[in-house]
Design a protein around this nucleic acid. Structure first.
Length: 110
DNA sequence: TGATTGACCAACT
DNA sequence: CAGTTGGCCAATC
């Protein structure tokens, strides 16, 4: 599996995010060895809708817990609904207790 | 083929 | 304190 690109690795990590947990683009990028490639993670999420397997992109937010990519879920409230469905609380497009529900791949997979 | 942009982040000015 | 810059990789113009 060395033919996989950056995107594929992002999918792998995102799919590993446990229920009710969230992570940030930067954390994933950092885990992949590229702290500056956080933007690509977002781009990968956009492509994730065309990916073969479903990817819980709603569990990926920016480092502030802001639902920056909610627009890309088809509906601006879709991401919020999905997160609330997992027991999270969202207010003003921001995850409450974000730190508490933060799942860092560097912490869990290290 | 070169330039620009994109769901970001951290450091610098 | 706010605005700018550099960094990373891939897709689009």
């Amino acid at each position: 599996m060395e033919d996989i690109s950056f995107f594929q690795r992002v999918y792998e990590v995102v799919k590993l995010i446990p229920y009710g947990k969230v992570t940030s683009y930067g954390a994933i990028a950092k885990y992949l060895g590229s702290g500056g490639a956080a933007r690509m993670v977002g781009w990968a999420m956009n492509a994730s809708f065309s990916a073969r397997e479903p990817t819980p992109a709603h569990r990926v937010v920016n480092r502030l817990g802001l639902l920056t990519g909610k627009q890309h879920f088809g509906s601006p409230d879709m991401m919020k609904q999905l997160l609330e469905n997992e027991g999270l609380k969202i207010e003003n497009d921001k995850i409450l207790d974000f730190k508490k529900h933060f799942w860092d791949p560097n912490m869990e997979l290290n």
